[in-house]
Simulated scan of single mutants.
Amino acid sequence: MPELTDFTVPDFHLPFGNAKHPHAARANAEATAWAVEHELVTDAVDQFAGIGFGHLAGRVSGDVPYETVVLLAKWMAWSFVLDDQHDHLIRNGRLAAWQPLVGAIAEYLGTGRINRAPARGNPLVRGFTELCDRILAGLSEPAAHRFRSHFRLVLRSLDQEAGNRRAGGRPTVEDHLLLRRHSSQLLPMMDMVEAGLGIDLPQHIHDLPAFREVVASTLDIIGWENDVFSLPKEHSCGDTNNLVSLIACRDRCSLADALRTVEGLIHARIEGYLECERRLFRVLDAGEGTEPALREAVSRCVRSYEDWMIGADLWQRYECTRYSDERFAAGLESAYTRPDLVSVA
């Protein structure tokens, strides 16, 4: 693997505006306190709060009520712990402990029950069940079905990423691009925001190829950008699930050259997104029976995706200490990670 030198995150020139919820800092504090109360974090609490999940929630939520912002911030906090704990188990060769944990989460997602008593007591499982109940209570049945399906894909993607890291394995660039849409954990969060905005598009809109391409473009732009921001950490710890690293290996080039390639891909994907957006509305306008209210709902949904793209970018640059932390850049585990978090599962 080539060395990483003189790393600077480029400007991706996202052509969208963004406004942050005025109480995002409060949501960050409440989500941090919730994680501590649920024993997801017991040490280095300030470092954990520095992730800024409340600020991210405030940037991507539009004009939803504050209750939705803080619920999303708590879900994001839980998701970061899940991701870091999964990384800890991979690093320490303890992936066998992952299956009872994720099995209990998947069981609750499908049935609303957990039959395995030890898993019920795990802080990650308890946090999940509490948040899942609250999230699903605010979703229509079709939206709840999408949320469950999307989160199952998240869990599956984590298993795939773990497999990619075994014995120095490396996915193809093409496989990584598909996997990244789910390992980002974005789709369930986007479901939450849409519900908070009062958007509940019918399934035939979700099934439109033009709409699906808008969603895919959104996920790609955010995921590829995050691969750039997290490159120092993932390169340092040998994590091969990173677009820049994979392109450097595929093209046998330096990481600096691969970074320029990814920057070009992101710029092209942004232009592609704008064209996909225009194509979607041409499809809607050409179709019979597209009522103005439905077109407006689709428009609000698309604006929400734009909030996600620019909001994630601004959060990573200015409000999240995760990507500038020396431990993170050195490839070390976060100081707040609990080595014993899944011991009871």
Rank of each mutant, 00 (worst) to 15 (best):
Y108G: 04
L71V: 07
G121S: 13
I105R: 10
L139S: 03
T129H: 07
W78M: 03
S149W: 07
A143H: 15
P142V: 03
C132W: 00
L72R: 06
A106G: 11
L131A: 04
S79V: 12
W98H: 04
I114K: 01
Y108R: 09
R152A: 00
W78A: 04
I105F: 12
W78Q: 06
R126A: 10
P100G: 09
A119E: 08
L155V: 05
R113F: 08
N122A: 08
G112S: 11
V69F: 02
K74G: 09
C132I: 01
R126W: 06
V70E: 11
L153T: 10
S79T: 12
R126H: 13
A77T: 12
P100S: 14
P123L: 02
A106D: 12
V69M: 02
Q85I: 10
R148S: 00
A119D: 07
N122C: 12
R152Y: 03
P142C: 10
F151G: 01
F151W: 02
A77E: 15
H86R: 04
F80H: 14
L153H: 12
L155W: 02
S79D: 15
R148T: 00
Y108K: 12
R91S: 13
R146P: 05
A117M: 04
V154C: 15
R126Q: 14
A97H: 05
E130G: 08
L72T: 04
L109A: 07
T111L: 00
G103S: 08
I135D: 11
I90M: 14
F147A: 00
R148F: 00
Q99K: 13
L71K: 11
W98Y: 07
G121R: 08
A73K: 05
V69L: 02
A104R: 14
I135C: 01
R134F: 04
N92Y: 11
A77H: 09
G110R: 13
K74Y: 07
G112F: 03
C132H: 05
V70K: 01
G121E: 11
E141T: 14
P142N: 07
F147R: 00
V125T: 15
D133R: 06
F80C: 09
L71Y: 07
A143R: 03
T129L: 01
E141V: 01
Q99H: 08
L95A: 05
G121A: 01
V69W: 02
P142Q: 09
L155I: 10
H145W: 07
S149A: 14
S149Q: 13
G112L: 05
A97F: 05
L153W: 06
N92T: 13
S140E: 13
R134D: 15
F80Y: 06
V70Y: 00
F80M: 15
R113M: 03
T111N: 15
R91A: 09
P123F: 02
R146E: 01
A143P: 09
R134A: 06
V102C: 08
T129R: 06
S140L: 05
L155H: 08
A106S: 15
L82R: 15
L139H: 04
K74E: 06
K74S: 15
I135W: 00
R156S: 09
L155N: 11
